[in-house]
Amino acid sequence: MDHKSDISARPPGPDGVARKAAGQPLYLRVAATLKEEILGGLHPVGAQLPTEHELCARFAVSRFTIREALRQLRDDGLIMSRQGAGTVVVPAAAPDLYVLHAMSINDLLTFTTNTRFEIEMMKMVTLDDPLAARLDLQAGDEWLAIRGFRHAEGMEAPVCWTEYYINREFAAVGRLLPRHAGPIFPLIEDLFALSIGEVQQEVTAVLITAEQAARYQVDEGTAALEVRRIYTAADGRIVQVTVNIHPAARFRLSMTMRRVKP
């Protein structure tokens, strides 16, 4: 029996998908199995994946689950759906492309957990008018500013330039940051017994500055994406504002939106 026949002969249903991700939603487990097959060469570049109907039968899952799994593979840059041509395997994305999948506040933990933040400056600053307008905060207020580059394993150039602005009520967290490797907002939640209830996100097109260009290893004026996030506590206080600037060719932000019934 050849390798393809062996894969196809797996028992259908949840037992036929990647076992190592048993705690994940079913569509992610189906996507993981198909991703392993694509990267392993079972479905080479240019080949068509089985139809949705065939995948439903193989895994004994609904068409919705298969469509969500295929969406995940498209977000990962592994497949492309073409009208009249089905779903086709495409060359994998370049290794220096950083993809953030965002469906909830918890997904933001993944972005920082898998990277290293190199602090270049940390001090209290008084917001002048231009900075306050950029952050959508009140001019004249004091905030703890932390700035530096974020790095991902296996990538030579930085993932992004990052600026953190921490409400002065929580500025004491700064003492822990030189030895802290993970995201900052869960640390604030733990230290001050509060909960982040909302994150407002805004993406703007900007240009790489001369100062950033050398570190990013790109030309000055290269297109970039500025992602600003405002973290608000359950009591309405703004706890943290984060600004990440990514060279556009190296970053993709993937968000999933679902219809909410009235």
Rank of each mutant, 00 (worst) to 15 (best):
237 R>D: 03
213 A>E: 07
240 Q>K: 03
229 R>D: 10
199 V>M: 05
228 R>D: 05
212 Q>H: 14
197 G>E: 08
233 A>H: 05
210 A>G: 00
185 F>M: 01
231 Y>F: 15
205 A>S: 08
199 V>Y: 02
213 A>T: 01
187 L>I: 08
227 V>D: 14
181 A>G: 14
191 L>W: 01
229 R>Y: 08
198 E>I: 02
219 D>S: 10
243 V>I: 12
191 L>H: 03
242 T>C: 13
229 R>L: 11
213 A>S: 04
203 V>M: 14
226 E>A: 14
228 R>V: 05
223 A>W: 07
200 Q>K: 08
191 L>N: 07
183 P>W: 15
240 Q>T: 05
195 S>G: 12
196 I>H: 00
221 G>R: 02
195 S>M: 13
197 G>H: 02
187 L>A: 11
184 I>E: 14
216 Y>I: 00
196 I>Q: 00
214 A>S: 10
198 E>Y: 07
183 P>E: 14
213 A>N: 03
212 Q>T: 01
188 I>R: 01
205 A>T: 09
221 G>A: 06
188 I>Q: 06
212 Q>F: 09
192 F>L: 01
191 L>C: 10
213 A>K: 01
213 A>H: 04
225 L>W: 14
217 Q>N: 12
222 T>S: 15
215 R>Y: 13
198 E>F: 08
239 V>Q: 03
216 Y>N: 05
234 A>G: 04
241 V>W: 10
227 V>N: 12
226 E>L: 09
190 D>T: 13
228 R>N: 07
243 V>T: 09
200 Q>P: 05
208 I>K: 06
232 T>P: 08
242 T>H: 07
217 Q>R: 11
215 R>Q: 14
